[in-house]
């Protein structure tokens, strides 16, 4: 009786030790991203969770943990929590703000963790092992190139810009530098704060102010939705093009369907978080060298390649 109990105890103990060893062997990849508070960040959360699920299923030795935070302060706390209980092999982070997150990320780096920074850089670039971002200048420039081409080098256009930030400035700069010297004339440019309602109002006002508009560029798809509603209401037919940017699924769907006014789209894809997670894991598991700067281009999404950028299940 006694010996049988002993055998059972030893067996259970052995199992527990083995389980511990197994867990310890797992490489832990923490992913820290902003919580979903608008379309684009909602897309980031969706793609990060999708990547975690796929990788955890494909590689039993890897555990990807996704943590979302509603503010910069929360993200700092989240980093502390993630790193307090176990050693992180890698951290993939899309920082809320550069300044506030730099020191906390450095503290984790000092523990020997591989650091991947996505989209927004830290103030000290030496902290990151891998940096991956999109190209906001290309978003503006590629849209402008298409517009010049389609309008035959001349036309009157109006522009809606977002919230005064580096992202907005870069998109506008890319656009304006590209149309410089062509016959494209920007009649008006105003802020609509990346908000559909404000864009709707602003477009109504543009339509009231200018009897003839050849094309509209809203530097984000949320705003484009408002623009399209205002144009539809006015019944005006002079607007030949209404373009956006970012890769929202509703707009990509329009491109797939061959919409005449919105035939193309430029991506600043939230799915870049997925690229970053996969590359980080490739380094951990496959010893693939990934250190460096990766800049995703913003190729024009047309009817031919739109499927690649279409995620019907994503909230964005």
């Amino acid at each position: 009786m006694l010996s049988r109990k002993w055998v059972a105890a030893v067996a259970v103990g052995a199992l527990m030790v083995a389980g511990q060893a197994l867990a310890a062997d797992k490489k832990v990849v923490a992913v820290s991203i902003p919580a979903a508070d608008h379309g684009w960040t909602a897309g980031v959360v969706y793609h990060a969770q999708a990547a975690a699920k796929e990788i955890n299923a494909a590689f039993p030795d890897v555990e990807v943990v996704v943590k979302t935070s509603p503010s910069a302060a929360d993200q700092v706390s989240a980093l502390e929590d993630l790193s307090a209980s176990r050693k992180l092999d890698a951290l993939v982070i899309l920082p809320y703000t550069s300044e506030e997150l730099t020191q906390p990320v450095k503290a984790i780096k000092d523990m020997g963790t591989f650091i991947t920074v996505v989209d927004r850089g830290l103030t000290d670039a030496s902290i990151q092992d891998l940096y991956l971002a999109g190209d906001n200048i290309a978003v503006g420039a590629n849209t402008a190139k298409f517009m010049i081409d389609k309008l035959g080098g001349k036309g009157d256009i109006v522009v809606l810009r977002g919230i005064p930030t580096v992202i907005d400035d870069e998109r506008i700069k890319g656009f304006q530098d590209t149309i410089k010297g062509t016959g494209i004339k920007v009649l008006d440019i105003q802020y609509a704060h990346w908000n559909s309602d404000e864009a709707f109002k602003l477009m109504q006002d543009y339509l009231a102010k200018y009897p003839h508009i050849d094309a509209v560029w809203a530097n984000d798809d949320d705003m484009l939705l408002g623009v399209l509603e205002a144009v539809k209401q006015s019944g005006r037919t002079d607007i030949k093009l209404a373009l956006g940017g970012n890769g929202m699924k509703d707009i990509v769907k329009k491109v797939i369907d061959g919409d005449a006014v919105t035939p193309v789209e430029t991506p600043y894809p939230p799915a870049m978080i997925k690229t970053a997670i996969y590359m980080t894991v490739a380094n951990l598991i496959g010893q693939a060298p990934v250190r460096g700067h990766v800049k995703l281009d913003a190729p024009l999404i047309t009817q031919a390649n739109a499927k690649e950028y279409y995620f019907p299940d994503s909230p964005f």
Partner: peptide, 11 residues
Amino acid sequence: ITYMTNGGTIP
């Protein structure tokens, strides 16, 4: 509303 929309939109 953020929870209901998953941060995106409810059309």
